[in-house]
Every structure is written in C-alpha cells, then in structure tokens.
Design a protein around this nucleic acid. Structure first.
Lengths: 104, 104
DNA sequence: GTTTCACATACGCTTGCGCTTATATACGCC
DNA sequence: GGCGTATATAAGCGCAAGCGTATGTGAAAC
C-alpha cells in the first residue's frame, strides 16, 4: 500500500537534506524544523520527517505535546558503505595528478 | 527547459546504481550495459546513461559505431563530501558501544 | 547508395512525489 | 469538561520520472 522508501531516495530531496543538516547540529522539535523551512507548510515538513523516520535516518521522542527529533547515528552508514568501493577512483585520480605535478 | 538533475537524484535510482557498479569494474559499451538490465529496454537504459552523463558521473568515448562508457573519478566525491560531517556520528556511536563492552 | 548495426531521441502514457488545504489526534491549561 | 497549541494524517492536485513503442542518426559493410 505504501511504497517503501530507501535511504538514497530519502536523501535525494533537498529539503530533507536541509533537515538532516539542522539535526546534525542538535536535536530539534518538529516546530523548530517547520520554522526552518519557511517555503513549506507544516504538513509538508511533517511528511518529510515521516520519510526520514521510515528509513531510519532520524528518531523521535515525545516531550509533552512536542516531538523532539534526533539524528540516528547509523542511518547514513548504508550510503557510506555503498560509496566505499568507489572512493579509490578519485583517490587514484588525485594521486596521479599529484605525481604529475611533482615530476614536471 | 530541462530540469537539471543533481548527483543525489541520479544515484537514488536503483538501475543507475547498478550501471555505476558495472562501470566500476571496467569500461563497457552501451550495448553491454543494456544487456546487463534485461528488465529494461534499450531506450530506457540509454536515458539512464544520459542522466549519469549530465551529472558527471560517467563519460563516453566513441569507438566506431559503439560508445564506450567509463566511470568519472570525481563524480561521487560530492556525495562523499556531503556525508563527511555526518560520519563522526556513527563513529562516536560505535566508539561508545565499544567502550561499554570493555567496561562491563 | 543501400542496408545493417549500435545507439540516441520523440512521444504518449502511467504512476508516484511533493505540495496545499482541511481535518484529526493528543497533550496542557483553565 | 472546553479551549488553545503542537503535530500528524487525509484528500486532492499538478507535475515530472520512468517506462515502452516508434523513429532518428551515424558509422560500417557491401
């Protein structure tokens, strides 16, 4: 019924990356996050937070009638793991460039 | 007129990640890449390759009537740069876990 | 030049995303 | 209880992504 979203798709959305950036600084209430995206309405931000929750990038804890969002430490690791094998490509490239500069 | 696609969106598509994976092994012709995705038609794969080209993740060189695709070394670096500040989160988390195990 | 092969593009279609407005839920305060 | 505040969900819509079929382009072989 609902399409399961994966981490890559979650992170592809600029507004969601913005939210992650704020949560990297410190935990925030849903209200604070809504205020941080003035171009969007409250329900829009709420939906983005839902997506981030569902892929395990953030977690919520209730605080009275507020809801405090926090970054979940290992969520982005899946992307990092995926990138790892590719990392050597630009490392090699940079190394070759370095070599070239030294040898001229 | 054309919506500029960014790297994150390009990588969000599973078929495109599949193509990148193959190109990480070695350069391939468009035809080989088409064969690697039997669920898709040739035009579908061609369009995915176009997206990967436009965001600078791959490059093409002609070889007679073939077109040889190759991974572009620094394309994914932008994603890696973005992840970097977050990396310490799961590092810290793992460290805390380690600490906990040693102290029990 | 014509035919064939390898690949890209055009077009039309369906589906899902992200948005807004409206409404529900749930807590705190009186 | 009733009311305001904080957040989530429902409903509906526009638009773009991704797909397939059909067609264009350009090189090679004859």
């Amino acid at each position: 019924m609902f399409n399961a979203v994966d981490v890559f798709e979650a992170v592809a959305e600029p507004n969601r990356r913005h939210l992650l950036g704020l949560l990297a600084e410190r935990d925030r209430t849903a209200g604070e996050l809504v205020d941080s995206l003035p171009a969007l309405t409250q329900p829009a931000v709420s939906r983005h937070l839902r997506v981030l929750r569902e892929v395990g990038l953030v977690e919520v804890r209730p605080d009275g009638q507020r809801r405090i969002y926090a970054l979940k430490p290992d969520g982005l690791q899946r992307i990092d793991d995926w990138i790892t094998p590719y990392r050597r490509f630009w490392r090699d490239h940079l190394a070759a460039l370095q070599q070239h500069l030294e040898n001229r």
